[in-house]
Every structure is written in structure tokens, then in C-alpha cells.
Design a binder for these strands. Structure first.
Length: 323
DNA sequence: CATCAGGGCCCTG
DNA sequence: CAGGGCCCTGAT
């Protein structure tokens, strides 16, 4: 699909805003629906059933932030649609997020202070919808990174679309409706294995109206958690990621999976992978040190680690992530 | 060549 | 609440 119409929006994130570390997360596995280079991020987005090509360009500074957002579409977009798109991006990218209390709180923290200084203006983002995150969470389960990449790409090719804009060609997600009537066998042919069942049942929950992302944003934490856990194939690890990335719960931290346990054991206790720190002990440390911003604080430490790795290999980390 | 565990989760006993 | 099974793939 060729996207010939272009509109431009100016976004003004609340200062401080760090463009690269907010719009690019080096720990996320690469996928064909986005591309990043310093100061620019391209991505596709399915908003109100219309496939879009987006290009974010950094036109400001950390203390005086500005983003030029170009929006490509197949047909012309009206102003009302663009306004709703702006609101949604504002939410997904946390553009209005106030980091000042967080920074004040950790200004003297021995481990965190240098990191919040280095990444001043970094905020979490998830560019996609809840449904899209659920799909990603499922392909992450019990798989190596490369396999997750392959599974998502196969799904893009089978159910998504390919968008041409700004000289880029990128995959775009599908809507839940697209999988209506698709059999488990057809999905398994994409080599996603037993996850086919989870994907079908999660997708069905959407077109059956069992959960509504926009309503859930206003629900309390427990209701969000139980709604997500009700979904077949979605357990505590996936829910932990979703509460943080999709529902912006900056203090929810109650689950640590084995691979993360190894990494945290090294980060916080300098322990080797064969002698990990028990999960309750890690959780107790996070509660003591990082409440009431447990997940946000760990996000900063985590992103710092992955940016370091992007510049030069971090030996102990290389052995813990299998690509 | 065969075996194994991986960026979990469900189901069973 | 512990433990087996699950798709597929690269590492060993």
C-alpha cells in the first residue's frame, strides 16, 4: 500500500525530554514495523482502522523539546482524526509525563543518581496498542530472540500490510478482525507452535469485546491485572510488562522471570548466573530502594545497561541473552 | 547425529 | 504448589 498523503504535526513534550532514549529501546527485539536512527524514528501505526506511516524527528533539545511528526496515509485525513491521533500518541509516548518528583527522589541515590542524570528526559514508551503488545508478549514466550523475530515477521506477512512512505517500506499490524475464521492449523504453519492457540484466544477476546483498552486505562491496578490474567496464554510475566508499558504503572513490580533474575543478580549483587539471588530478595530490594517508582527505576537501570551494550559488548550480559 | 533449553503458561495430580 | 509438556531452533 502506497501512502501518498502527508500531514505534519508539531508535538511539544514536557521538558525534560530525551528523544533517542525515549523513542528507541535497544532491548526490544527488532521488527519490521519501525526503524530508528539518531534523531529520527519511523514506524507504522494502525489507528481507528487506518494504516499510517509515522516519522518522528527531533527538532528540539532536552530542556526545550520539540518533535516534528509527519503522518502518511493512503487517503487524506481530516482534522478531527489528526487530533485524536495526537492524543493517542501523547498517551502512548508519555509526552506529558512529569519526571520531576522521580528525579528529586533519586537525586542522591548512589546507584540511580548518575543514571537519571545521564538519561535525563528518558521516558518509557510503547508505540502500539494493547492488542499488539499481547501478540508480542506471546511470541516472546519460551523462545529465543531470533525466533520471536521470525514469528512476528511471519505473522506480519500473513495478516499485516506493507506500507510505503517516505522512501521506507514497513510492516503494519493487523486488526483482531483479520484473524476471524483463521484456524489453529493455519497459524501453526507460520511456525509459532503452541502459541497459535493463545493468539487465537486473545484475538477472539477482542472481537468478542471482552476487554476494552481505553476503558481499562481508567480501571484500577487490580482490575487491569485480573482482566489481563483472564486471557488464555497471558501469565504473570506478560502482565508485568503490559502494566508498565501499556498502562503506565510505574511502581508495579511483582514478578521476575528466570532470565531477568540472572541479570538482576549480576546488576545488584554482582552474582554469577549459576548462583542467583532468590526472587523474593530481589523484590525486597526494589521495594526498599525504589518505591514508589519500582518499575520506572528499574527501567532506567535496564535501559542504561542496554545502551552501554549497544556501544560495546557487555561481556557478562552477552552470555545471558541468546540471540 | 542427538539432545537440550529458551525473554512462560496451562494443566494435572 | 510442583512439575511435565509444548513448537521450533540454534547451540553443544
Amino acid at each position: 500500500m502506497i501512502l501518498a498523503n502527508q500531514r505534519t504535526i508539531r508535538l511539544h513534550p514536557r521538558a525534560p525530554f530525551h528523544f533517542d532514549s525515549s523513542l528507541h529501546k535497544p532491548d526490544h527485539f527488532p521488527s519490521s514495523d519501525n526503524r530508528w536512527t539518531s534523531g529520527i524514528r519511523w514506524q507504522t501505526m494502525l489507528w481507528k482502522s487506518i494504516p499510517l506511516g509515522l516519522k518522528f524527528e527531533d527538532t528540539g533539545t532536552v530542556e526545550e523539546p520539540a518533535i516534528q511528526l509527519s503522518v502518511w496515509s493512503e487517503k487524506a485525513l481530516d482534522d478531527g482524526y489528526l487530533a485524536s491521533l495526537r492524543d493517542e500518541i501523547e498517551w502512548r509516548y508519555n509526552l506529558s509525563m512529569d519526571l520531576s518528583e522521580f528525579y528529586d527522589h533519586f537525586g542522591d541515590h548512589p546507584q540511580l543518581a548518575p543514571i537519571v542524570r545521564r538519561w535525563r528526559g528518558l521516558r518509557p514508551i510503547h508505540p502500539g496498542s494493547l492488542y499488539e503488545y499481547l501478540i508480542i508478549a506471546i511470541v516472546l514466550q519460551n523462545a529465543t530472540v531470533r525466533r520471536s523475530v521470525n514469528m512476528l515477521q511471519a505473522m506480519f506477512e500473513a495478516f499485516g500490510s506493507s506500507l510505503e512512505f517516505d522512501g521506507q517500506s514497513m510492516s503494519c499490524f493487523w486488526e483482531p478482525e483479520k484473524l476471524r475464521g483463521v484456524s489453529e492449523e493455519a497459524l501453526r504453519a507460520l511456525k509459532i507452535g503452541y502459541r497459535a492457540k493463545s493468539i487465537l484466544r486473545v484475538t477472539q477476546a477482542f472481537f468478542d469485546g471482552e476487554l476494552d483498552e481505553f476503558a481499562l486505562r481508567y480501571s484500577d491496578l487490580d482490575e487491569q491485572r485480573t482482566s489481563l490474567l483472564r486471557l488464555y496464554g497471558i501469565g504473570p510475566a506478560s502482565v508485568g510488562y503490559i502494566l508498565f508499558d501499556v498502562f503506565h504503572r510505574w511502581d508495579d513490580f511483582r514478578h521476575i522471570s528466570p532470565w531477568e533474575q540472572k541479570i538482576y543478580s549480576k546488576m545488584f549483587f554482582d552474582q554469577d548466573p549459576d548462583d542467583v539471588v532468590p526472587v523474593p530478595e530481589l523484590l525486597a530490594l526494589f521495594e526498599k530502594d525504589f518505591s514508589p517508582w519500582r518499575s520506572l527505576a528499574v527501567h532506567y537501570l535496564w535501559e542504561d545497561l542496554w545502551w552501554r551494550r549497544a556501544h560495546e559488548p557487555v561481556e557478562w550480559l552477552e552470555q545471558l541473552i541468546r540471540l
